[in-house]
Each structure stands twice: as structure tokens, then as C-alpha cells.
Design a protein around this nucleic acid. Structure first.
Lengths: 178, 178
DNA sequence: ACCGAATAGTTGGACATCCGACTATTGGAT
DNA sequence: ATCCAATAGTCGGATGTCCAACTATTCGGT
């Protein structure tokens, strides 16, 4: 709702100006955080717009995609939380809605009676495929930014992720620069 | 809750692998969107952790900061929504909580009886200053990423923002590269 | 002056996400 | 064999965000 379209002015530049004028520190970091948040808002907004046609959100899409890569299209919910990096209660909530819509089915884990398996249904897999095509068409919300540019972006973002302990493997960038 | 700490493996590299293995398109864009989302999650998580000590969230912090830069520390709510790029109902919700905590006060707009002014209270300004110091100390969640590196990151992010119509002015980068 | 369009703010509903707490089950240590 | 810590999933509560719809007010054109 707030993703695309004019901002009248550069919100990030405005933030920088305010910060500098008030003699506040860590300006570059503040600008980076602000710019990151705004970029995320833009991209996520575009993605969710494209997914609304399928009555999906990015969260639910991610869950479907994760299951689609698992053997038999099923996975224990706890593992999903680890992979998606979300709280267990978020997995419960997401699976609740996916199950309600017939895209995923719950079943008891055969070897661990504490665990629950979430399994992709045929409908779920079909919808996932259609949704994936839609996301490819909008280039995952990255607008007209060229692939070569995205390589640089990924490279810079990896420095943020690795600073948080994420095991960042080579970014397979197209054009080198560092 | 999901921000920092190990991911066991590189979630983004894992996504790339799955995509390539399944012959899906727009891999670079998918990776960029995934990496952007994860980076945002990390940085926002750190920021909110730092702000929890003040019973603040980043949303509320942003609202306080915005007001602090306005004349008299007050602004019409609709304008806040424009600046923060959020839906009017989000402003209502945010101001509700800030008012509940005595950090902001509502008052009728003197020239427009439709509008409501949100004004920073003395407590609000004091808390904002303390919270800002805390954010500076954690470098706004940017971890150990050097300022020079942040300049590059800002540059790449600006290409995403400008693709969405944001008026991106010169990023005042420290070290050039394009 | 009047009327319809636009604007400001709120309320209700849906989602996503976190945290704390709780139940059930598993597993390691004694 | 027993007991306590760890793990899996859920529920209730809080927050943030969006959308649709509604009321009140302002504004532009006739």
C-alpha cells in the first residue's frame, strides 16, 4: 500500500539531512538502515501485490516453496521455522492458513510423536508453480535493476548477513569488484 | 527472535541452489529479494532489541524522530503517514500507543478541523534522545560493516529505491565505484 | 451559495510476528 | 528404571501493517 510511487522527495536523503543538522552520530549506518528498510518495503510490497492474485502472501509462498524442495514435499514444522528463520508460533500460524486453504496438510511425524509434518498438497504445488511464474514476471520485485547491478547488491547485502553470523558462501557474483 | 545468530548454512545460497536445480528463472532477482529480506530481518531485529529497553519499537521510534524534526515538535497525522510511507491507519495505531505512554499528545489542528496534530511531549523527547544514543551504539544494527562498505550498500539500495519512483538524490558516497 | 470530489482520521477485520506459558514427548544422566 | 532438561507444537496477548468502510470537514467548479 505504501511500496511504489512518488515520495515527493528522497526520504533517505531527508533523514541524512536531519541527522547531520542535529549533530547526531553514525550517519552512514543510520542511512543504511533507513535505506534498507525502505527498499525492503518496496520489494515486499511488489511481491505481495503479485501474490494477492493467488490469495497468497510472501510468508505463505515461502513456506510452500520450502516444502516443495523437501523430499515428498513434507517437513517437520520445527525444521521449517529454522529454515525460514521465524518463530515456531509463526510456523503454526502460517500452516494454519495454508491448511485452511487446502494447500498443505498436517500429519503426525512417524518417528517422533511430538512433531508434526506439513505436506504440500497437489493444489498447493500447482498454486506454487503459478505463483512462482508470477514472481519471475515481476523479477521478484527488483524492478528494472539489471542483473549485473543485483550481483553488486547481493555482494553488499552479504556483508550485512555475515556480520550477523549467517554463513555466507561465495555470492557467485557476475561481475567482480572486491 | 530470529535476527542474529547461526543459520547453520547460508539460507540465500541454499535458495539459489534450489532455484538453479529446478531450472527456475530470474535467479539473481530471487536471490536479491531473499537476501534483502534476510538483511532487513537481521537489522530490524537488532534495532528492536536495542529499543526494547525503552519500551519502544522501531515504528514508534521513527514517529518520535519525525516529530522531533518538525517545528514545535508537532505534525498532522496525515503528513506523518506520507513521510513514513505507511497507511493512515498505521499512524493512528502508532500514535495511539505513543499517546498511551505519554510520549506524544494529540491536539486539534488550528486551521483544519479534519486534521489532528501529534505533538512530542517532554518525556517523548527525552526518551527519544536516549533511544537515539542506544541506536548509535549498535550502529543502527549494521554490525561491524565499515562505513565505507555502507556507502556502497547505500548506493546499490538506491538503485532499487529509484526503480520504485523514489526521488533518489546523490548518495554522498565516500568511495566511488560507478 | 451549493454540491460532489477529495482529504483527515477512526474503526473493524485479516495477517504476520514476536514473547511467555503450557502440554506432550524425547533423551541423557544417574 | 527414574527424573529433569530439552524439544515440538499450540494458545493467548501484544504490536504493526494493510484494506474497506464510515464520518467529518474542506475545497473546487458552477
Amino acid at each position: 500500500m505504501n511500496s511504489d510511487r512518488p515520495a515527493g522527495m528522497d526520504l533517505v536523503a531527508e533523514a541524512r539531512r536531519n541527522w547531520v543538522d542535529n549533530d547526531l552520530g553514525e550517519v552512514e549506518a543510520m542511512v543504511a538502515a533507513t535505506s534498507l528498510a525502505r527498499s525492503h518495503q518496496i520489494v515486499l510490497g511488489r511481491i505481495n501485490s503479485a501474490l494477492s492474485e493467488f490469495s497468497l502472501t510472501f510468508s505463505r509462498y515461502e513456506a510452500l516453496a520450502l516444502l516443495s524442495f523437501a523430499r515428498n514435499g513434507s517437513m517437520a514444522m520445527a525444521r521449517m521455522g529454522e529454515r525460514l528463520q521465524v518463530h515456531p508460533t509463526s510456523v503454526t500460524s502460517t500452516i494454519d492458513r495454508l491448511e485452511r486453504d487446502g494447500l498443505v496438510a498436517r500429519s503426525p511425524h512417524p518417528d517422533d510423536r511430538r512433531a508434526t509434518l506439513a505436506t504440500l498438497t497437489k493444489d498447493g504445488r500447482n498454486l506454487l508453480n503459478d505463483a512462482t511464474s508470477a514472481l519471475e514476471q515481476i523479477r521478484w520485485g527488483m524492478g528494472e535493476v539489471a542483473d549485473s547491478r543485483l550481483g553488486d547488491l547481493n555482494h553488499e547485502l552479504s556483508s550485512v548477513r555475515s556480520s550477523a553470523g549467517d554463513n555466507v558462501s561465495g555470492s557467485t557474483r557476475t561481475n567482480a569488484k572486491g
